[in-house]
Amino acid sequence: MKIVAPIASVEEAEALARAGAREFYCGFVPDEWIGRFRAVNANRRPSGNFRDHAELHRAVDVAHRRGGSISLVLNAQTYTDEQIAATITIAESFLKIGGDSLIVSDLGLVGELFQHVPLSRIHVSSVATCRNGSAARLCKELGASRMILPRDVTIGEACEIAAEVPGIEIEAFILNDGCVFEEGACATLHLPQNLGGPICLDNHTPHYRRRGSGKLDGPALDRLRDNDEEYRKWLWYRFSCGFTTNAAGMPFGPCGLCALPLLLRGGIAAVKIAGREAPTARKLASVRMVKAVLDRAEAGEDDECIMQFAQALRPSEQHCRTGYMCYYPEVLGH
């Protein structure tokens, strides 16, 4: 099983490779894209991208020197006809310098790329919301070599897809960056906090009134307020526990570490650490955590012992008990 880690610099590639990552993914938004389209976003993230061709080339060299591979993310919500042409140029350039694969969300773009690059180099992004065996068969027929599952696919569903459709690799999320809605159905950007932040992190204050006439108070109002408080708590967990870390720098936030033994036995080929725009320290701590747990799973250690080890890494027992922080809450009986 491969650990797939995000990078935004050559230095990160070196550091994460030393920590145990062997597969990397990155975004690339060159100056010519920004100058031509007046947009900093070509892949759903306005930050955390490479900007320089030479630096991207060096990152590819680092990944290969470390015995790994590197993928380029091309998963914007939409591309104009002009942007599709520019995207194909970027894709061709990336593969020409030795890049290994392209992470693509729009199956229409896959069709356009068909005329220019080997489709065996395509990984279908989680943003394509492919979540069953039929979708996996379609991706395989299109020539893709990997399908990345959306965040809310269960362990059982993921393993069933892997067994049902051999010949295409299945990748699942393992750490960081939850999404309140179905990411592939999201038509917004995650703006910086000073511009309002993610639209789904809406900090409005609700006011309730009874339909028709009469005053809303007592137990009904208390239940509504309790529900609002639980929703705010769920949002906090979904958004990486406020992007907090423990004293050792280990990040809290959406996590699937306890599920690693089941994913490994179920034939999942790779597990993804999210967060291209995250600080290097967070990425590094994430790789170390996944590597430590995966090593135990691959050595055949008991699942319960692995779960205890994983939860004690940060430590995160109190967060784990809620089930809100878990990508795969079924391992906790939730």
Score class of each variant (00 low, 15 high):
residue 62 V to H: 10
residue 83 Q to P: 09
residue 56 L to E: 05
residue 84 I to V: 15
residue 24 F to S: 11
residue 77 Q to V: 13
residue 30 P to T: 08
residue 22 R to H: 15
residue 70 I to L: 10
residue 27 G to L: 12
residue 80 T to S: 05
residue 31 D to K: 14
residue 53 H to V: 13
residue 52 D to L: 13
residue 52 D to Y: 13
residue 66 R to K: 13
residue 69 S to R: 15
residue 65 R to L: 10
residue 68 G to H: 03
residue 83 Q to Y: 06
residue 59 A to N: 07
residue 73 V to D: 01
residue 68 G to C: 04
residue 37 F to G: 03
residue 38 R to W: 05
residue 21 A to M: 00
residue 48 G to C: 08
residue 66 R to I: 01
residue 32 E to K: 13
residue 38 R to C: 03
residue 38 R to F: 06
residue 30 P to G: 07
residue 59 A to V: 09
residue 33 W to V: 01
residue 42 A to H: 06
residue 52 D to E: 15
residue 83 Q to L: 08
residue 90 I to P: 00
residue 73 V to S: 05
residue 55 E to I: 08
residue 54 A to N: 10
residue 86 A to T: 06
residue 52 D to H: 15
residue 28 F to A: 06
residue 74 L to V: 14
residue 33 W to Q: 03
residue 67 G to L: 03
residue 84 I to D: 06
residue 30 P to V: 08
residue 22 R to Q: 15
residue 27 G to E: 11
residue 86 A to G: 01
residue 69 S to H: 13
residue 38 R to I: 02
residue 27 G to V: 13
residue 66 R to E: 12
residue 59 A to R: 12
residue 89 T to S: 12
residue 51 R to M: 04
residue 77 Q to S: 12
residue 67 G to Y: 02
residue 86 A to S: 09
residue 66 R to C: 11
residue 63 A to S: 11
residue 53 H to R: 15
residue 65 R to D: 10
residue 77 Q to K: 14
residue 36 R to K: 12
residue 90 I to V: 08
residue 88 I to L: 05
residue 64 H to G: 04
residue 88 I to G: 03
residue 56 L to K: 05
residue 43 N to L: 01
residue 85 A to V: 14
residue 61 D to Y: 08
residue 57 H to E: 14
residue 39 A to S: 10
